[in-house]
């Protein structure tokens, strides 16, 4: 099953029941992603970006075809194996941050490490490092409600990156941010991509994001319309 690629998508289709019929969100996708990519899946609403990201993230399963993530076919994974894949190899960044509101910045970032069963001393160092990467060491005791949108998204990045995953999936990460914060966020992720060779895959239609990515995959009506590598000078 190991194709040499980090992620291999083969003839992927995803249908959703809609009334008596069905809606096809993905209609025969073939793609590969390699380590260290900084890729954007671009398309209008309803083009299937989030569905593709969900399947890669083992949050959903294909209706047809295969999605092989780090050698594991997502459709064949049991709930426990899928959870293990997400816990150890994947990081998620969401449009609306999805931080635990009653927990501090430190605790939000620490949460994935608790699931991994890492000891307290190591955990403390890893959280400290992650908060340094995103420049939030002075906000460890703050609660999400006390932070700006940009800061919340930086916490979300730290939470996704703290365990140093192979892949980070970011669904519209700048949709709720102003331009300055968007650039700050994107620069942070770009830096982490360079530093750790973490693969970043964005679902976006934000021009600011598109300006940073090195590969653009355009989706239209559930199909890949264009797959374009950007060579930056």
């Amino acid at each position: 099953m190991d194709s040499g690629h980090l992620i291999t998508i083969q003839h992927l289709k995803k249908h959703f029941a809609m009334g008596a019929g069905k809606f096809t969100a993905l209609n025969g996708i073939d793609l590969t992603f390699d380590k260290g990519e900084f890729t954007g899946i671009i398309g209008p609403s309803g083009s299937g970006k989030t569905t593709l990201l969900n399947i890669i993230g083992s949050l959903d399963v294909p209706s047809e075809g295969k999605a092989i993530v780090m050698g594991k076919s997502v459709g064949d994974l049991g709930a426990r194996e899928a959870a293990m894949l997400r816990k150890t190899k994947l990081g998620f960044i969401f449009q609306s941050y999805n931080l635990l509101q009653v927990h501090t910045v430190y605790e939000n970032v620490e949460f994935p490490l608790l699931l991994l069963g890492i000891d307290a001393a190591t955990r403390k160092q890893m959280v400290k490092d992650a908060l340094e990467w995103v420049g939030l060491t002075d906000k460890t005791s703050s609660r999400p409600a006390q932070l700006s949108g940009g800061e919340c998204q930086r916490v979300a990045i730290a939470r996704a990156m703290v365990k140093k995953p192979e892949i980070v999936l970011a669904d519209e990460p700048t949709a709720n941010l102003d331009a300055a914060n968007s650039h700050h966020i994107l620069q942070t992720m770009e830096k982490l991509n360079h530093e750790f060779r973490t693969t970043f895959i964005f679902a976006t239609h934000d021009e600011k994001v598109i300006g940073y990515i090195r590969r653009k995959i355009f989706l239209e009506d559930g199909k890949v319309a264009k797959d374009e590598l950007i060579t930056k000078s």
Partner: peptide, 15 residues
């Protein structure tokens, strides 16, 4: 449910 969704996404098992 939203919180549970996020926890599951991060890798916590349903059980």
């Amino acid at each position: 449910y939203g919180e549970f969704g996020m926890r599951l996404a991060i890798g916590e098992e349903k059980g």
